[in-house]
Structure formats: C-alpha cells, structure tokens
Design a protein around this nucleic acid. Structure first.
Lengths: 195, 195
DNA sequence: GTCTATATGCTGATAGAC
DNA sequence: GTCTATCAGCATATAGAC
C-alpha cells in the first residue's frame, strides 16, 4: 500500500529500539552516538527524538522491557511440584531465556552504571524481585529438607552468577546444544545446593 | 611550598594509573575523559601524555597489569597435594584475589570491548591461560576419580563465573567475613563438581 | 514523520612557552 | 614536567522548513 509522506511510527519505533539494543550491546552505551543509531535505522539523528525523550530513556526502556519480559516469562513457566522440581525449572528456564536474548542480557548487566540514579533504582528493584524468586525456592527446599546449602542468600547469588555465565561462552552451533548445556548445568546446580 | 620545575614522574605515573582505574571502574572507559583523569591527578590534560601514549594504552596497561598480577599470584600460591586440595586452593585464592581489587576486576570484565583488536587478543590469551589452570586441576581430579563432573570445560566456566560473581554483591563490613564467604563457596564448588 | 541546519559544549591529542 | 592555548571533530539535543 503506497504511502506518500511516510508515516512509519509503528515501524520506526521498534526499529530504533532494535538498533539501539544491538549497538549498545556491541560497543557500549557511552560509545554509541545517536547518529550511529539513526544511521542503522535509516533516518537522520533528529528524527530519533520522535521515539525517545533522550538517550538515557532509550537505555532505560530497553532494560526495563527486558526485566519485565524476564519476570513475566518466569511467571508463565510450568514449574512442577516440590522445591527440587522448581529449582530445576528455574535453572533450565534461566539458561534458555538468557541464551535467547544475549544482547539484552549483556546490556542489563553491563550498563547499570550508565543509568540515572532513579532509573538504576527501578531496574535494581526488578532484579531483586527476580533473585527473590530463586531465593524462595531455595528457602522452600531447605524447609522440605531436600537441600543442605548453609546460606540461602549466598547460594542464590552463586547460582544466578553461574547460570548467567553461560552467556559469556556459549556460541550457537558449538559443541553442545542448549539442552545439553542445561542438563550439565542442572547437575552442577543440584550438586552445589547439596541436593 | 613553592615548587619550581617539579619532577614528579615517579609519583605522577602511578597516580595517573590509579585515577584511571578508579574512574574507569566507576563510569566506564568510554564515559571518562582525559580531562577528568587529569583533574583527579591534579595536573592538566596535556600532562597525561607524558605517562601514556593515548587513552587506549592506558586501558590496556591497566588490564594487562591486572592479568599479570593474577597469574603471578596464582603461581606463588601454596597449593597442597592432590586435585581436591588444589581445587580448594584455587577457589579460595580466586575469591580472595578478586575481592582485594574490585575495580581492576570490574574493568577486566567490562571493558574488553573497548580494547583494540590486538590488545583484546593479548588480554584474552592471558584470561585463557588462567582458565587453563583451573581446567588442569579438574582434569587431574577426573583422573584421580575424586570428581565426577561430566564436562571439564563447562565446569571450568561455571566455577569461574560463580566465584567471580562474589564481587557483584560482597560489601566490606557486611554480614559475612571474606573467610566465611570462601568457606561457603568452597562447599558449593565441591558439590558442583561432584566431589 | 523526516529532513537540514544549528546551538552549545566536550572530546582526544598536540605545540610551544616556561 | 607541567602549563596554556588550540585544533579539528563529534557529542546531544532542538528549531523550523517541508
């Protein structure tokens, strides 16, 4: 359908966010200029300000959308009965979700210090909510007597670091499939919590 | 005290590196200007170029010095006999060494993409050398039959991510001493490798 | 909705005085 | 060894034409 004086806001908006996501992940927020993003989208720099208030909002919106996705996806995940089944569900979910969107994950971890103070606080709260999900599972597992980890909080942080670390080395088409990786990591998680 | 033609190269050089380390860790390499570093040191921006070829070299020198320190410190670490003792030594060493220099660790992980191609390759080689140390221990443990982890390479990456993760949450003067943290993490490491 | 043009300011790096 | 002054360029963001 022919269109005369381009009215692409429904297409250009997402394109801006996709371009920013890829460029921020590759070069870092501070190293990417609005001109670079505009060039990737195929518009002039000034036009970006129709879709974002400023560069800071662009970063914040990307990170917030990522964390919202994460929390919603975990909420929708089938979890099974018992703390051990839920721990397995969490480990497999975390690896799968994070491997599916490496750019967003990278930004969420690396660009926290480039957020304004209030934006940082908002993202930090979402991150703690997610950590709380795992912490609750471990707490339940302790109550059920199926895990013996001595410190729930440390175990939470250790497991999340271990699982997220997959993103730093996993390459599509490598030696192992995502499922094989998840199997091995689940073994290590189980061992680490003393299950 | 009046000073005529100050000759402070032995003092100013290290000051430049210390200031750059702190500022890069706090704000990120790309977000820090040479003028900011100079202000922190107490000289004018132009004077920095007496101590570094350019901004890129400043970053590279910091990262290389950190990796050299790491490898030298591990080499000098008492390790005990047997793979399990060496694994414990590695875990405790890694946590201790990394907690002692959070800024350098942060930069070494976050600023890799701001290195030039050849500088990146050099740092990457040092990082792989360090990973190889842990991998060799796990390999030996497999041979001795004291660990049952099914995939040495994945276990290496998982353990390093888990141990390095301590830096993201540990705060001096918090609930647990470094030794207590190391005790708990060593338990988790042992469990994760099936020892 | 996108463009061009522009404001205002900071960037890395160098030259030359002292 | 450090300074001031400066270059050439790029930054974010906005104004106004179309």
């Amino acid at each position: 359908m022919a269109r005369k004086t381009g009215s692409h806001s429904e297409i250009t908006g997402p394109k801006v966010r996709r371009a920013a996501l890829a460029l921020f992940a590759q070069h870092g927020f501070a190293a990417v200029s609005m001109r670079q993003i505009a060039a990737e989208v195929g518009v002039q720099a000034g036009a970006l300000y129709l879709y974002t208030k400023d560069k800071q909002s662009l970063l914040y919106d990307l990170m917030q959308a990522h964390m919202d996705d994460l929390l919603a996806a975990w909420k929708a995940e089938p979890k099974g009965d018992g703390a051990l089944a839920q721990l397995e569900a969490f480990a497999r979910f975390h690896i799968r979700f994070h491997l599916e969107r490496p750019d967003a994950v990278f930004i969420a971890y690396m660009e926290l210090r480039n957020l304004s103070d209030e934006n940082f606080a908002a993202i930090e709260a979402l991150r703690r909510t997610y950590e709380g999900e795992l912490e609750a599972i471990l707490h339940a597992g302790h109550g059920e007597g199926v895990i013996t980890a001595p410190d729930i909080r440390l175990t939470t942080m250790a497991l999340i670091a271990m699982l997220t670390g997959v993103n730093t080395w996993y390459r599509e088409g490598g030696r192992l499939s995502r499922e094989a990786v998840a199997d091995i990591y689940w073994d290590m998680v189980r061992g680490a919590v003393g299950a």
